[in-house]
């Protein structure tokens, strides 16, 4: 390769490496702001500010959803399988909302450690499958055989 081109290539590569390092350090320093929501473990560890609009995300705990019979009020627990946070919400829930499903809620944490949400969004994982397959997997896990692939990875919410 021509020496001038070699020199230019070195400059370009240095530019790229320097830029990548700068961006990597910046995004690392800002990671808490880039994160869309707080995990239940972060909230129960007191990392989330109280009475400030924040987002909380996690899985809706199985059997924790309590619907008020007279209004749209609903209460449930959000968990990341190491800690749980109680959530209250008044309003229409997204179609995908269900026990065992991921959600991201927007709202405020009150002094009692309850999260009062004003918006609930559904978060789904990267797995897609036909309904029949999902049914078969569920039956298999209920029959007490090997844990089904769907439930095997709780960390993917």
């Amino acid at each position: 390769m021509h020496p001038i081109r070699k020199k230019r290539l070195t400059i370009v590569l240095f530019l790229l490496v320097g830029l990548s390092v700068a961006v990597a350090l910046t995004t690392y320093a800002l990671r808490q702001n880039i994160n869309l929501f707080y995990d239940p473990s972060q909230i129960s560890a007191g990392e989330a500010p109280v009475d400030v609009r924040i987002r909380a995300g996690g899985m809706v705990e199985e059997g924790s959803v309590v619907r008020d019979p007279d209004s749209l009020k609903v209460a449930f627990m959000v968990t990341d399988y190491s800690a749980s946070v109680p959530v209250e919400y008044v309003g229409i829930l997204p179609d995908l909302f269900a026990e065992g499903q991921g959600i991201v809620a927007m709202g405020r944490l009150n002094n009692e450690g309850r999260f009062v949400a004003d918006q609930v969004l559904a978060k789904h994982d990267e797995n897609y499958m036909p309904p029949e397959v999902a049914d078969a997997l569920e039956k298999a896990s209920k029959a007490g055989s090997k844990p089904a692939a769907v439930n095997a990875a709780p960390a993917t919410y």
């Binding site: 880039i34 869309l36 929501f37 995990d39 969004l121 978060k123 994982d125 990267e126 797995n127 993917t156």
Partner: peptide, 11 residues
């Protein structure tokens, strides 16, 4: 993968 997002990870 690096941050909490509403978008799901890659399929």
């Amino acid at each position: 993968e690096w941050w909490n997002t509403l978008h799901q990870p890659a399929t």
